[in-house]
Amino acid sequence: MPETWTVETVAEKKIGDTPCWQFRLLRPDGRPHIHTIPMAALDRYAAEYDMNPTDTDSLLEILLHEPHMPMTDEADGTPQRYADPGPTLWEAESTRAAREAHLSRVKTCPVRIDVRGSRAVDTIRATHTPDRERVRTMREEVDTMRWVHQHSDLPIRPAEEILHA
């Protein structure tokens, strides 16, 4: 059974030039845990997983659970990966497959952080305004990067490379 953590407060914080939200979470034993997320991460995750950029609750659930998702323990220097057999964003055959695998990781995470209905998150719900053009551009980048990761190159060279060859 997952351990349930509670969102106690959310505050705006700037780290360098990066605007962030800082979450103060309470563990079941009452100990606090601070988790800081760049505000732009909501748009990024909406793009990566082709999610509604205005669904702040779903996006925050992924962002807050991700650090608690079980990972492999690779002693041989191989990069860590999620412990479940689901595909990563770059391995999945589609954005939909990547989204379903990642949402499954949230559901099976050993830590449960309830965002929906949390009044502490009201500020984010009220102020988050997605940049739809940026989300669209990022979606294209994600699709391109997935293709390159899986096939090592683009199917054809970009037009500017062909014209200047």
Score class of each variant (00 low, 15 high):
P2L: 08
E3P: 00
E3I: 13
T4W: 05
T4E: 11
W5D: 00
T6I: 04
V7G: 01
V7S: 09
E8A: 12
T9W: 00
E12P: 00
E12W: 00
K13A: 12
K14W: 10
K14N: 14
K14E: 14
I15N: 15
I15H: 13
G16C: 09
T18Y: 02
T18R: 12
P19S: 10
P19H: 07
P19L: 05
P19I: 00
W21L: 02
Q22M: 13
F23N: 04
F23H: 03
F23Y: 06
R24M: 10
L26T: 08
R27H: 07
R27N: 07
D29V: 11
G30V: 04
P32I: 07
H33C: 06
H35E: 13
H35F: 09
T36I: 10
I37R: 00
M39E: 14
M39I: 12
L42G: 03
D43G: 11
D43M: 04
Y45C: 06
Y45P: 01
A47I: 03
E48L: 08
E48P: 02
Y49C: 10
M51R: 13
M51Q: 14
N52G: 05
T56R: 05
D57K: 03
S58Y: 04
S58E: 11
L59C: 00
E61T: 11
E61W: 01
H65W: 01
P70D: 03
M71N: 01
M71Y: 09
M71G: 06
M71I: 13
T72M: 05
T72L: 09
E74Y: 02
E74L: 02
T78V: 10
T78E: 07
P79R: 09
R81I: 11
D84P: 01
P85R: 10
P85V: 12
G86A: 08
G86V: 12
P87I: 04
L89N: 07
L89K: 07
W90L: 15
E91V: 08
E91D: 14
E91H: 09
E91I: 09
A92L: 06
T95E: 05
R96P: 04
R96G: 14
R96L: 15
R96C: 11
A98T: 06
E100K: 13
A101R: 09
H102Y: 14
L103K: 10
S104A: 15
V106Q: 04
V106S: 07
K107H: 10
K107E: 14
T108I: 01
T108V: 01
P110F: 14
R112I: 05
I113T: 03
D114V: 13
D114R: 07
V115Q: 01
V115P: 06
R116H: 06
G117L: 01
S118T: 12
V121L: 03
D122Q: 11
T123R: 13
I124C: 03
A126P: 02
T127F: 05
H128V: 01
H128F: 15
T129W: 07
P130K: 06
P130T: 02
D131R: 07
R132P: 03
R134C: 05
V135L: 01
T137M: 11
T137S: 11
M138N: 06
M138F: 07
M138T: 10
E140K: 14
T144C: 08
M145N: 15
W147P: 00
W147T: 15
Q150Y: 06
Q150K: 15
L154P: 02
P155N: 09
P155V: 03
P158A: 03
P158E: 00
E160K: 13
E160N: 12
E161P: 00
E161C: 05
I162G: 02
A165M: 12
